[in-house]
Design a protein around this nucleic acid. Structure first.
Length: 611
DNA sequence: GCGGATCAC
DNA sequence: TATGGTGATCCGC
């Protein structure tokens, strides 16, 4: 059976013009940027836009790099297509049975009892700017320098999109108005919106600055309201109170809600009913690219084996694991069935895994100047680590060459680090090594990333009041006062001396593969070696609700904000049910199953849950 | 565990 | 003239 259907697809596939017929087609598609399939592009002559972008980019280093990437992807895709042909000559009955068993297993996890919605602000940054300057509503306008972060719907008619280089956008539309971004303003507006969201689901989940997931099952129950009606009300309330228009998707799970919020954008909503048949039909004709987690590359790979829509996944199910791996198979199986998570939870409950900082600059080859950039990155990282209250056991240096090629090198300092001078000291040898590997190295970006994080926060109780760890977690002792009093300049001079030492030893070190810095570096002070990585998520007591809280500094979603807005709501609405006051009683106020059917929501974004 | 690649926003 | 920053995951080695 699988053989029959896959054969059919092969034949259909031979006429596919998207894949290999014209190498420039895929490159042009690539150059159009990632947001092509998003909303607002219907009226655009995509062919013409593509030509303009292509010509504006042609010959640049960026273009050459994209071309190179495109070539590699094309090669990979050819291998995949050839492998498919090879596989289909084999006996696939075992793989087919295994796939079907997995699908049957997944089917058992289907949960149609919840109303999950995804709320997405329409052209958010641009919309906020238009509130201050209404005259911009009727002209093409975008926010961002160098690269656009957002543009209004007038600009989209010209083929302009977020993520586009502004000089390219100007070619598409010379009269485009460009505004610098003002994140404080957007944050303030986002807070207003979240205040309203909390009334519909106090445990809503901010997906980003301008997006959120809500589970409105309880709200609908309590208010005897249809989900469509509830969302109409929610959107009207947001528009009235904040003057921001939002779109929404309503579905049995987050994955479909997310897709649905784009369907009637802007200022619209779309619902997929909580019925198996409705879900299956919706997925059947849905282009894979619409699913969160399937980007331009995976889209091309799937296309090359005849999968364009989620419905196309089924006939190919027997070969997916061998072609793309187990994770991808499981993910695609969930796409086909239209499964997704239903447990929506505040983002504070997620555990941070890394902190990073990076900047792009004009091409730099001068070694001293590059050290200056590294120093700056180290200083930024120190601030970020202080803000997030972490130390790091793994330090990663990221550079982008003038050719746009990206390289990373990581190292594990002998102990967790957080101070700029330490970060600099341990990152510098990696930079030096790269300079030796790449003679005449010229960079356009340099950054640092810290992972394997160790919290410096006081330990306590987690969100639900359980102790976070069986053993008392290690807490980094405060730095000795002596260290604190050393000024940054002084510290860097010390690091610079170390650098000279490093460079003197460099040849020998390299020959022994010993890019490990001298461990007698002044800053390393006693203190117990950090034991097992501190993972306690609960760190501080909320000044509003006096409950121990998960720590996470992500501004938009911080708990205090949440509590404050909840207080405001309660004052305004005489809210009496307020089960959210008692987070320790369970999974919150919602009537819903706490389980996550088929937790593998996204091939590249693992969700984190309470332990 | 490391480095490259992909993805989202 | 000129193409971003942050965080996360997966894969092959």
């Amino acid at each position: 059976m699988a053989d029959e259907s896959t054969d059919r697809v092969v034949e259909e596939d031979s006429g596919n013009s998207n894949v290999n017929d014209n190498a420039n087609d895929t490159l042009k598609y690539q150059l159009l940027g990632p947001s092509l399939t998003k909303a607002g592009q219907d009226a655009v002559n995509q062919q013409k836009v593509s030509e303009i972008i292509y010509n504006a980019s042609k010959g640049s280093k960026f273009f050459n790099h994209e071309q190179e990437r495109d070539r590699n992807q094309t090669l990979k895709i050819e291998r995949i297509a050839a492998e498919k042909v090879r596989l289909e000559k084999l006996d696939l009955s075992h793989d087919l049975r295994r796939a079907d068993e997995y699908l049957a297993e997944l089917e058992l996890t289907r949960d149609l009892s919840q109303y999950v919605i995804h709320v997405d602000c329409d052209a958010f940054f641009a919309a906020v700017e238009e509130l201050d300057r209404p005259e911009l509503k009727t002209v093409p306008m975008a926010v961002g320098k160098g690269v656009l972060t957002t543009c209004n719907y007038v600009a989209r008619k010209f083929g302009i999109r977020s993520g586009m280089a502004s000089f390219v956008a100007k070619k598409l539309c010379p009269q485009l108005v460009l505004l610098p971004s003002n994140y404080e303003k957007y944050t303030a507006k986002a807070t207003e919106i979240r205040t309203i969201l909390a009334q519909y689901d106090p445990l809503f989940e901010s997906a980003s600055c301008d997006e959120a997931y809500l589970n409105i099952t309880a709200y609908c129950d309590e208010n005897q309201m249809d989900p469509d009606e509830a969302v109409q009300r929610l959107r009207a309330e947001i528009l009235e109170n904040t003057k921001i228009s939002v779109s929404a998707g309503i579905a049995p799970n987050a994955k479909i809600a997310k897709i649905s919020s784009n369907i009637n954008k802007p200022n619209g909503q779309f619902r997929v009913a909580n019925e198996r048949i409705a879900v299956m039909e919706f997925m059947q004709s849905l282009p894979c690219r619409k699913v969160n987690g399937i980007g331009r590359v995976f889209e091309r790979e799937l296309d090359s084996i005849g999968i364009k829509t989620c419905g196309d996944i089924y006939p190919q199910r027997a070969i997916l694991t061998k072609l793309f791996g187990e994770k991808a198979f499981q993910f695609l199986a969930q796409c086909y069935l239209g499964l997704g998570r239903t447990n929506i939870e505040p983002v504070e409950t997620h555990e941070r895994k890394s902190v990073s900082t990076e900047t792009t600059f004009h091409e730099i080859g001068d070694k001293e100047e590059l050290r200056g950039k590294l120093r700056w990155a180290a200083e930024e990282m120190e601030k970020d680590l202080a803000r997030t209250q972490f130390k790091s056991r793994t330090l990663c240096l990221k550079v982008k060459l003038h050719t746009f090629e990206v390289l990373t090198r990581q190292t594990a300092p002998p102990r967790a680090v957080s101070q700029a001078k330490d970060l600099y000291t341990y990152a510098l040898p990696m930079l030096i090594k790269l300079e030796k590997e790449i003679p005449g190295m010229k960079l356009r970006l340099l950054g640092l990333r810290c992972s394997n994080l160790v919290t410096t926060k006081k330990t306590g109780l987690n969100f639900f009041g359980f102790t976070a760890q069986p053993k008392p977690p290690t807490v980094e002792p405060p730095e000795p006062t002596k260290e604190r009093e050393i000024g940054a300049e002084e510290a860097f001079e010390a690091a610079a001396r170390q650098e000279v030492q490093d460079e003197m030893n460099d040849l020998e070190q390299l020959s022994q593969e010993a890019a490990i810095p001298d461990q007698s570096i002044p800053t390393i002070e006693a203190g117990p070696e950090a034991g097992p990585v501190e993972e306690s998520p609960a760190q501080w007591e909320c000044p509003i609700c006096s409950k121990p809280q998960m720590a996470d500094d992500r501004g938009f979603n911080d708990h205090v904000d949440f509590c404050l807005s909840r207080q405001t709501i309660r004052e305004a609405t005489q809210d009496t049910h307020s089960v959210i006051d008692e987070p320790s009683q369970g999974t919150g106020s919602r009537k819903r199953k706490p389980v996550n059917p088929g937790g593998n929501e996204d091939p590249r974004q693992k969700r984190l849950f309470f332990r």
